[in-house]
Simulated scan of single mutants.
Amino acid sequence: MKEKIDDLNWKILECLQVNARESFANIGRKVGLTPPAVAERIKKLEDLEILTGYHAVVSHSKTGHALRAIITVRAFMGKLKPFLALVDSLKEVVNCYRITGNENIIMEVVFVDQFHLEKFIDKLIQYGETRTHIILSEVVSRAPIQKG
């Protein structure tokens, strides 16, 4: 069953996507509800799994991972399942998606330097053909989901 999200819940979701640590009181002032009413609505959004978590955003460059890349993998015959079993253990992988098209996998990865990237690619080539794109800058990042 698809749960309909009303306008107040959308406003609450917008507030939380900008600042997940915002207090119920501040959100309430913005959306016109009491703090307990905001808390109740957030709890229901969590229970319905519309709101699935709260995350810290960490600067990759300030933690020593100055090189970021997008890597796609076109898995060799019989190598996709072993790769999927491995990918979660690769500490360089920030995001990974199984996709349609010529490639099977697209990953966002972080590295200390180009030598770290080279070693990472050496691990991947046994699973398939890789294509690497160095990220120069972010154009859109963490854009909030908005009411359709």
Rank of each mutant, 00 (worst) to 15 (best):
M1E: 10
I135A: 08
V109M: 05
D113A: 04
R74P: 10
K147M: 13
N19Y: 08
M107A: 11
G53R: 04
S141R: 14
H55Y: 15
L117W: 01
K79P: 04
T72H: 03
H116F: 06
I71T: 09
K43R: 15
V109P: 03
H60P: 08
E129A: 09
L136Y: 12
T34E: 11
E49Q: 11
K62N: 06
E49W: 08
I134L: 15
L67G: 01
I145T: 12
S59Y: 07
D113R: 03
T34A: 14
F83P: 00
R29S: 10
N9R: 12
E129F: 14
K81S: 14
K4S: 04
G32H: 04
L124D: 01
K147F: 08
I99V: 15
G53N: 05
L13K: 04
R41G: 03
L67D: 00
V93Y: 05
E118G: 06
L16A: 00
I50C: 04
A56M: 09
V112M: 03
L67R: 02
T63P: 08
I12C: 07
L86F: 15
L51E: 07
E40P: 00
K123L: 13
A69E: 10
R74G: 05
E14G: 07
L124C: 07
V31R: 02
S137F: 12
V109S: 02
I42C: 03
T130L: 05
Y54P: 01
I42K: 05
L90W: 00
I145G: 05
I99D: 02
G32Q: 08
T72Y: 06
L16E: 00
